[in-house]
Simulated scan of single mutants.
Amino acid sequence: MDFANRCRHFRRLLSLTVLLAPLSFAQGADLPAEAASQTGPATKPLILYSVLSEYPNVVSYAFTRKTGIPVEIIEMRGSGAAMARLQYERRSGNGDIWFGGSLGSHIQAGAEGYLVPYVSPQTTKLEPLLGGPFMEGTVNGLYGGILGIVVSKPFLQERGAPVPKTWKDLADPVYRDMIGMKSPLVSGTAFTTLISMIALMGEDAAFDYFKALHQNVEYYGKGQTYRVSTGQIGIVITFYHEVVNSIEDGDVAFIVPPEGVGYEIGGLSIIKHDGQDVQKAQAFIDFALSWEGQSLIKNAGSDRIPTYSKLYKEQNQQIKLQDVTLLPLDFEWAGINRQRLLDRWTQEVASLEKKR
Rank of each mutant, 00 (worst) to 15 (best):
D277H: 15
K222H: 13
G95M: 07
S50D: 04
R91C: 15
Q276V: 13
F207H: 05
Y114Q: 06
G80Q: 09
L329P: 01
P41V: 11
T346M: 13
R159W: 05
D277M: 13
L13S: 14
R176H: 13
N94Y: 03
R85L: 11
P173D: 05
E203N: 07
P162A: 13
I233E: 01
I247L: 15
L147N: 00
V119M: 02
I146H: 00
K165F: 01
L142M: 10
A206D: 05
S295K: 03
R176C: 05
L341E: 08
G275V: 12
T124P: 00
F210G: 08
S309G: 06
P41I: 12
F239H: 11
T64Q: 03
R91D: 14
S15C: 08
K165R: 06
E89P: 09
D249F: 12
P173N: 09
Y312N: 01
F25H: 09
D204K: 11
K165G: 02
K298P: 04
D30R: 13
V324S: 01
E158N: 14
G68I: 11
F331S: 00
F210K: 12
A283C: 03
V324Y: 01
L329Y: 07
P128E: 07
M181H: 13
N94R: 07
K354C: 07
S60T: 14
G335T: 12
P128G: 05
K125H: 11
L341R: 10
L48H: 14
I235V: 14
G40C: 05
G266R: 08
I146M: 01
L194H: 09
V163Y: 00
L329K: 02
S15R: 10
A199D: 02
L321W: 04
T230F: 14
H241D: 12
P133G: 10
A190T: 06
T67I: 12
Y219G: 05
I247A: 05
T166P: 01
H273K: 12
G180P: 08
A84W: 12
K211V: 09
Q339T: 15
I271N: 00
V324I: 14
K211Q: 15
L200G: 03
Y308P: 01
P133D: 05
D208P: 01
I255P: 03
